[in-house]
């Protein structure tokens, strides 16, 4: 098993798996407890517009996706709080419009769009080292921000109204949280793709939630479960030559199923003992 690490693509894949797990473990925890899963889905799909723009301009789509997902995160946040449009509808609109822009740009780009599939469904085995560098930088931004504003994000997630009264700039913090979601989407896109990102936000945290009810531990357990499961998914997809994004999501889903079962059995035996 170790010998496969002699390949550079495999070392990159392993690094990518770890970097992805850090981003989705931290941000996914807040996505789950603040119940902004659907918003995160909307930002993810809107980011596809940026990927299309990258193809059109002939630069790395990951780079153009960063401003696109940040803008759509702020867009959703502002539209839903400032206007009469419901957040739900705002998400739906941005979701589809982002995808449409992406498809339009790709259509306008002459010739065939290489690796388009990998941005849609992920391809952990083809992550170039240049993207690894981007992922490292984004991970550092996420870690530092959450370390610095942990108590604010915790309060915001639990009781936004009360946080507002105590004088915390909740609106700005909420937008910042959405921006962290946007940045972690960029980290995740390479590995599971636009369409499957939401699985990495939700499943590791949902698994971890069954074993702890402390927010800090939830973050750490989420990172751990995400690391173990994405590496397992990577291994499966390599040895059975299956699409990596889909395999990772299915490994996550299977692990969730098993963890729910364990939890149930444990509570049952607790009840009888």
């Amino acid at each position: 098993m170790i010998e496969i690490l002699q390949y550079e693509f495999m070392r990159n894949a392993l690094l990518a798996a770890i970097l992805v797990s850090i981003a989705c473990g931290i941000v996914g925890t807040f996505v789950v407890v603040k119940k902004i899963v659907f918003i995160s889905g909307g930002i993810t799909h809107a980011a596809f517009g940026g990927i299309g723009l990258g193809y059109f301009l002939g630069i790395n789509p990951i780079l153009t996706a960063i401003p696109f997902s940040l803008l759509s995160a702020i867009g959703i946040g502002v539209i839903s709080k400032r206007t009469k449009i419901s957040e739900d509808s705002a998400i739906g609109i941005l979701w589809a419009v982002g995808m449409a822009i992406g498809i339009l740009f790709i259509g306008l780009t002459p010739g065939y769009a290489p690796d388009l599939f990998s941005y849609l469904f992920g391809s952990i085995l083809t992550v170039p080292f240049s993207d690894i560098i981007i992922m490292i930088v984004l991970d550092i931004i996420i870690i530092v921000t959450v370390l610095f504003l942990y108590k604010e994000f915790q309060a915001l997630s639990f009781d936004e109204e009360f946080s507002e009264i105590t004088g915390v700039p909740t609106r700005a913090l909420y937008l910042l949280l959405l921006c962290l979601v946007a940045l972690s989407i960029i980290v995740l896109i390479r590995v599971v793709g636009v369409i499957l990102v939401i699985a990495l936000f939700t499943i590791p945290t949902t698994i971890a939630r069954q074993f702890t009810n402390k927010l800090k531990k939830l973050i750490i357990y989420s990172i751990l479960s995400a690391t173990i499961l994405t590496v397992a998914g990577l291994w499966f997809s390599y040895f059975f030559d299956l699409p990596s994004g889909a395999v990772i999501v299915l490994v996550l889903a299977f692990a969730f199923f098993v963890s729910a079962l364990i939890k149930r059995l444990r509570t049952k035996t607790d009840a009888f003992s």
Partner: peptide
């Protein structure tokens, strides 16, 4: 209106009362 499934301890909830007394990013 609260989600009581939220992973937070009693002490953490009460500490939110002190949230605005500390600057952004400062510990309790």
């Amino acid at each position: 209106t609260f989600d009581y499934d939220f992973p937070v301890s009693i002490m953490d909830v009460v500490l939110m009362g002190r949230l605005g007394k500390r600057g952004l990013g400062r510990s309790y």
